[in-house]
Design a protein around this nucleic acid. Structure first.
Lengths: 144, 144
DNA sequence: CAATATAGTTTAACCCCTTAACTATTTAAT
DNA sequence: ATTAAATAGTTAAGGGGTTAAACTATATTG
């Protein structure tokens, strides 16, 4: 029935999704993007949110193939932002954990993103923030 | 005071942005992603929306460096989805235009994305669509 | 008319992803 | 017990994409 509006919603969504990602990582790239790729940042984010976990779990949460996770991990280990802890029961399994350097580098990176997004979202009025949160929660849930 | 809510809004926004892009291109990749990269799709989208334009304009709209645009373009020309028209006044300048094949391939790709996103956004109630559109329009504008 | 600016291309170096093969280890099945 | 199948990760090959810098061709300026 509201075909038209649905179409508009979809176009807005793709625009925001694509432009958003571009903008964020363009504005913030200065120091941050020199050091981390977007995927690496997301991996650090997952480790920071959920604590240590296996490569397999990381792959599930982040998407993509386990080989991609593996090489991502390898680079983070080389930079010493992440460290690997062998499981004692199953010697195939390795737990991945943030190092202190990793945690603080992530924190810093995250702060830059937050600052930029704060400045963007500051344009949303106080009364609208709840609306924003409601809608985005909904969309996030629907994306699963 | 609404520090907390601002933080939540930011986290939701980054989640939706990142997960959204991942999900869309994971679900839809079947036929589409075999043929086009995301950047190529975006380029076709720009050409479809704005009509023929120069490589320089494409770079400005899409972001990144002109060399990236150049190689992207090269591939689309090879696949004959796009065609180049020399400017008559300034022989340095080349206009880029969709071919028919390009237009219809893009249309098809776009349709797949739309179908998927329709199924996702179908979870939003009719009464909420306006709210959705309002918020996303606002965010899109703010990202400029 | 020479110097400078502009539109695009090319090349080199690097990152990321996927697919598929391979290692090591554990579980299941006979 | 032993062997076959499953599981966690790594590695290698092939294809994208990106940037920075050098380079070509054409226009503009002083």
């Amino acid at each position: 029935m509201n075909e038209k509006r649905m179409e508009e919603a979809i176009r807005l969504f793709t625009d925001v999704m694509i432009d958003g990602q571009n903008e964020v990582f363009r504005k913030v790239e200065n120091e941050l993007h020199q050091e981390f790729s977007m995927e690496q940042i997301k991996m650090l984010n997952l480790l920071e949110r959920h604590g240590p976990m296996t490569s397999k779990q990381l792959t599930e949460l982040q998407g993509g193939h386990k080989s991609a996770t593996s090489s991502r991990l390898k680079k983070l280990v080389e930079k010493e932002y992440v460290r690997v802890i062998p499981d004692e029961n199953d010697r195939r399994v390795k737990y991945v954990a943030l190092t202190e350097a990793g945690a603080s580098a992530y924190k810093k990176a995250n702060q830059q993103v937050n600052e930029y997004l704060s400045s963007v979202l500051a344009g949303i009025k106080d009364e609208e923030i709840d609306e924003f949160i409601y809608i985005f929660q909904k969309v996030k849930a629907l994306l699963r």
